[in-house]
Design a protein around this nucleic acid. Sequence first.
RNA 1: GCCGAUGUAGCUCAGCCGGAAGAGCAGCGGUUUCGUAAACCGCAGGUCAAGGGUUCGAGUCCCUUCAUCGGCUCCA
Length: 589
Amino acid sequence: MLDHGTPEHAVDDPVESLRHRMRHSAAHVMADAVVQLFPEAKVAIGPPTADGFYYDFEVGRPFTPEDLERIEVLMLDTIKSNAPFVREELSRESAQSMFSTQPFKQEIIDDLPDETTLSIYRHGEFTDLCQGPHVASTGEITAVKLLHTAGAYWRGDENRPMLQRIYGTAFESQAELEAHLERLAEAERRDHRALGRQLNLFTVHDEIGPGLIVWHPKGGVMRSLIEDYWRDIHYRRGYNIVYSPHIGRARLWQTSGHLDFYRDSMYAPMEIDEQEYFLKPMNCPFHIQIYRSALRSYRELPLRIAELGTVYRYERSGVLHGLMRVRGFTQDDAHIFCLPDQVAAEVGDVLDLTFEIMAAFGFEDYDIMLSTRPEKYVGEPEMWDHATESLRQALVERGLEYGIDEGGGAFYGPKIDIKIKDALGRDWQCTTVQFDFNLPERFGLVYQDEQGNRVQPYMVHRAILGSLERFFGVLVEHYAGAFPLWLSPVQAVVIPIADRHNEYAEHVATQLRDAGFRTEVDDRSERMNQKIRQAQLQKTPYMLVVGDREAEANAAAVRTRDGDNRGAMPVSDVQKMLTAELAGTPAAR
RNA sequence: GCCGAUGUAGCUCAGCCGGAAGAGCAGCGGUUUCGUAAACCGCAGGUCAAGGGUUCGAGUCCCUUCAUCGGCUCCA
């Protein structure tokens, strides 16, 4: 019997389906090669993924880059042999005996439900327990490449053995494979860690500590611009902006429950006057104290309290990554306290605000996920239902597509998470809107209603940018460091052709600075070409070259970072041009 | 935290089998005054991540710690 696939696993898109099967088949061919080179290897699982495939092995030693080359060579032999993939169904017993020397396969067989039809796929001498589907023969794997190795826990469980994983990818054509590798190279070129140094935006220092960021002047200018815009739009949307300390007494964190459930992720306490203080991992308890500073009337609600709040979390050492995962970061945090019948409108306003802010930064594509009540939860089911329905309603009213993560909410409330897509199509988790039925209870939050009853308010926790650090990292990668004019730390650099033009260059710069443009003069004793190169590498939007001709006419020769030479124009026209470009941005004037 | 790799000048990196620490860029000094992506000459710059060990001798070999990178797990 020749059967290359079971229909229920077919993917709708025929191209995706072929790609999927090809990658799955490539994983088998790779396992084949590994077993040939390492006869003692125990094989685990080898699925296709969104970008390629992998296979996990238990071998005596980790794979080296040389191993990968040898494996790839053997794979190409197998592909050239064009061996057919043959599917066979078999009984549980024969599967068990066939894989008697493969403990991971044994475990998979044992864990499959009784009614499952077991199947194997063979190609050449290699047989793997697998439900398929595959391509018809190894020759259909057109373009394949092994990429890297990594450790990975068996079944993703950190208490199980660590296996050696090999990642690879496969495409229908060599051209598509090369395009994929080019995308990987492009992602590397956009790496915010390298750009952060090259553009002098931020650094991380061993001496300061892992996951702790210092923002340099240029990164600082950008952060100020982001914060100014954030504050401005939040005031306009009825938020109250507050400030709170970086540390708080143990009792606060005891009440909030952080010490019971979150302590491992908090920085160790410091003792002052025989009292324990903790660095804050979250802003919520501080905002709650502001809420509690008065007896709240229903007339005051909704009360929206927002803060650019810097928090510290002990992230495990292996997870730190540039600005994306850090130990000290600033959340654009807000807590909304409101009445039951205000909930839907508040959630809707948060969504609208999110899309407006994200659009201002150039993000237009989103991936939205609604997460509902998990098995273990706190709070009243009726409140959960009301909250979840309000989240759903806000999404539906706006015609937004969203996925549902059934039972994926936090124990304290349902939530909406929004991922933004960057220029390379990669997803970044930033926005989150979460109900919280835990803290209002723990802190005994109430408001007084029309009848004079004291009632618990709904509390919504939300962050739009997420953390300024991470969002900034995403911005750097999205724009590859070539930020839009309104965000560029230096908007224009004036380049005098010879030293005798320095004075005039300064004159031009002063006019632009007076008009509010961030302008520098490169008055080094270098050739103009060198100065242009420097500005280009710094991705400065505009280079204003000035020499004898320009000095005579109060003009500047405009060159953009795209290499577009627009020729000389009066400085007043340069101002008009820059102003026009800022129209519609947060820096519009 | 786990698996693996890496750590040499401010940055990017070379340094073979253990035998006198290197280059480019950046910096500093000088010369050059130039028309749209790198002028020329010179100078300076190092506790080879930290600590311990092996050795006549360690950047190089071994151990510990720290950090970074690629993943895994995690991100109530």
